[in-house]
Design a protein around this nucleic acid. Structure first.
Lengths: 245, 245
DNA sequence: CACCTATGTAACAACGTGCAACAAAATCGA
DNA sequence: TCGATTTTGTTGCACGTTGTTACATAGGTG
């Protein structure tokens, strides 16, 4: 891919400049903007690969802008916000953000997530679902999509719960591509029923990944298949072949 | 199908916004509305795939609106209510709701039921009743609609009770389509004679399904034909062929 | 090294479902 | 009509699944 062009939208000039500088240091092209008009100009003009959007824009609410953007063009959006309250996050995702970062954030995390989102640009924001394939094999394992049966390398059937099965499917459809917790949650229809204290949607994804590891990894403590991408999420890091029949 | 467009009708602004947000999070398009006028506008305007309707609308009673809607357009309706009393449920179904959820509800269940209803949109609200067919075969079994006789794969006649027969017929007419307990109850004319403690209409459907499984499944503990769709209901998951004569 | 954050995970709680056992109701034969 | 049998609904408990929480650990920074 050519050098990524990132639109940095924030009405706080300092923050805007800081993020832009940081991104440029890391090999991206950062285009600062502070109003919706500027955003629109950039979108109409050159190619934009990603938008970093602050939710607390002065007049226009970032959420609304984000929602409109998703309708008009297929540009990935990462929301940036000082609001960590749970429902605020939900609003961010609701309008279709690809990810969500809370200020003050660790610059590395920002970079990691920017990369993660860019690495799957050109896919639409939702994950790819392979169709017309019925059997997946990976690392000796076999997964029959139709019956949802999972066979270990020594042909022993392993029982996965519904959520575990869905998680496995998500990874099988996107091997070698890091999936953020937000993406996983979306494809799994995670709801986030009650209040959360920590970062995003609770730790349910982490726990779920742990449970799946416990069933398909030889040594769950040192995963060979479902690896952690620190600051981003998880990767299915072995090759997957899909056959019909 | 295109992205589902869901009309969220509730006079409680908070609840309305919450449900709408939640649905958007999960890839639907949610259109909030609080009065019948707004509902009408939406229906006259764009395409609407599903209506989430609160029964306790301020002036207009949700039930009446629901009833009218069913007459005018063929839009599926899921009733939402804080009233768990039995007769209220019945009223909901009476006017033709496709499902019924009691507040406070588990968001995951809401989503599951929304999906279930959407997945069989384009069918009218009532289940399909095949006519002019007399014999069904599935997984080696044979069912003669006229005599209501059931023959196992090795041609042994199995006796089903009336309710069990009706249940089997409902599934034979809708193979591969998950049926909610509410739908099953409706087609079986379940009345709900007394009070219930738990969620819906008691567990009678569960027990009935269990009994049918005991008669037609090789191993009722691991059903191959009549499978459970957690959070939704049950699916008849084998192919069904219907012949005359 | 201390410190901070992200991640792993055991223990727990909440929930849906299966099912046996019981109770109530319907059906049938005399 | 009465009693026996079958059918149907209800209830309580067991069990599996899934989200939450609290604490331990790993990875990275200065």
């Amino acid at each position: 891919m050519a050098i990524p062009r990132i639109l940095v939208v924030d009405d706080d000039s300092d923050m805007r400049q800081m993020m832009a500088k940081f991104l440029r240091q890391n090999g991206k092209i950062a285009l600062p903007a502070s109003t919706e008009r500027e955003v629109q100009n950039h979108l109409d003009g050159g190619r934009i690969d990603l938008i970093l959007l602050d939710v607390m824009l002065g007049d226009e609410n970032g959420l609304e802008i984000c929602g409109r953007l998703r309708h008009e063009q297929d540009v990935p959006v990462i929301m940036v916000s000082a609001l960590s309250a749970d429902h605020q996050r939900m609003e961010g995702y609701a309008v279709g953000a690809d990810d969500y970062i809370v200020k003050p954030f660790n610059p590395e995390l920002l970079l990691a997530r920017v990369k993660a989102v860019l690495s799957r640009a050109r896919r639409s924001s939702s994950l790819v679902h392979r169709r017309n394939t019925k059997t997946f094999t990976f690392a000796g394992w076999t997964y029959h999509a139709k019956t949802k049966e999972v066979l270990s390398p020594d042909s022993v059937q392993v029982a996965l719960s519904r959520r575990e099965t869905a998680l496995l499917q998500a990874f099988l459809a996107n091997p070698h591509i890091p999936l953020t917790r937000a993406e996983i949650a979306t494809t799994l229809d995670v709801t986030g029923t009650s209040e959360q204290s920590r970062e995003a949607m609770g730790r349910s994804i982490d726990v779920l990944v742990g449970r799946l590891r416990g069933k398909i990894e030889t040594n769950p403590k040192a995963p060979q298949i479902l690896k952690t991408e620190r600051g981003v999420g998880y990767v299915f890091s072995v090759d997957v072949t899909a056959q019909d029949g």
